[in-house]
């Protein structure tokens, strides 16, 4: 593939090791283009989630995980930033929708501000909540129940609420770790359409098990196997004409 010009995120020789020297990710190097969707695929245990979580520095919650290499956001090494600031600039959406159970919908959208101790005026809050709920096409469904807790929403609605929660902080990058694996096909379709619209505002990296999903929505695709980045290319190229034998056998269902 031709090199990506002006990348927003550069992953440089990143390796991730668990305590006993078991390397889950091995020397991955890749640039991510701005305002695109990049899918990361691979069989279970290939290190794709580990890589994604390292970008948001989730690994720091667990002592025994060690990351080497550099991850540059707009040229700045995120591994050296204060983690709270870094995580505000790189959002994350998880596998299972997890709105905060003790906060209402309104506060859930503002959770990032609340948890960072940022004071906002009432008008600012209203504006942020409405804009972000509209962004995820949830506004019309919940505008009358903003003071209710988010737990009564359907799984798909909850996941969109979680996306709104991340977008509210206006991150540069949104990381998604199999965001539709806990959802039914209709809710999945809804989220996929949403992601395609959102890429004008935010760069998306999505880990997925679902090859057809990657094919449908992504501009670029990575294929990882046993901790290595095997192939990284335009999705249109990757899905029609993979170069590596392992990618080919994965995409044709012979592996994974």
């Amino acid at each position: 593939m031709e090199s990506i010009k002006d990348p927003i995120l550069q992953i440089k020789d990143v390796s991730i090791a668990y305590g006993n020297n078991k390397r889950a990710v091995k020397n991955v190097t890749a640039d991510v283009a701005k305002n695109t969707i990049t899918a990361i695929m691979g069989p279970s245990g290939c290190g794709k989630s580990t890589l994604l979580r390292a970008i948001n520095r989730m690994h720091e919650l667990y002592k025994a995980i060690h990351v080497t290499g550099e991850i540059l956001l707009n040229g700045e090494n995120v591994l050296l930033m204060p983690p709270t600031e870094e995580r505000r600039r790189i959002g994350m959406v998880f596998q299972r929708p997890n709105p905060f159970p003790t906060m209402n919908i309104y506060d859930n959208v503002l959770a990032g501000y609340i948890l960072n101790g940022i004071k906002l005026s009432r008008a600012e809050k209203d504006e942020i909540v409405e804009r972000n709920l509209r962004n995820v096409m949830l506004w019309d469904e919940v505008k009358d129940s903003l003071t209710k807790r988010g737990t009564f929403l359907s799984g798909g609605q909850q996941q969109r609420l979680c996306i709104a929660r991340s977008l509210a902080l206006q991150p540069d990058i949104l990381l998604m770790d199999e965001p539709t694996s806990a959802l039914d096909p209709i809710a999945t379709k809804y989220i996929e359409d949403l992601l395609v619209q959102l890429k004008n505002e935010v760069t998306i990296m999505i880990v997925t098990h679902n090859m057809s999903q990657a094919k449908r929505i992504s501009d670029y695709s990575m294929f990882m196997y046993l901790g290595e980045l095997i192939e990284y290319d335009d999705s249109s190229v990757m899905f029609t004409n993979p170069k590596d034998e392992r990618t080919r056998s994965y995409l044709t269902g012979k592996m994974g």
């Binding site: 919650l61 983690p83 709270t84 870094e86 995580r87 159970p101 906060m103 609340i114 960072n116 101790g117």
Partner: peptide, 29 residues
């Protein structure tokens, strides 16, 4: 409490003590 609750709080850039006192403790209350 699910681990992802804490992760979600931290992923929004919340500081550890805020996530514990504003997300975890209220959820466990």
């Amino acid at each position: 409490l699910p681990e992802t609750l804490k992760e979600a709080g931290l992923a929004l850039g919340g500081s550890y003590w805020r996530v514990m006192l504003q997300v975890m403790v209220p959820s466990a209350f």
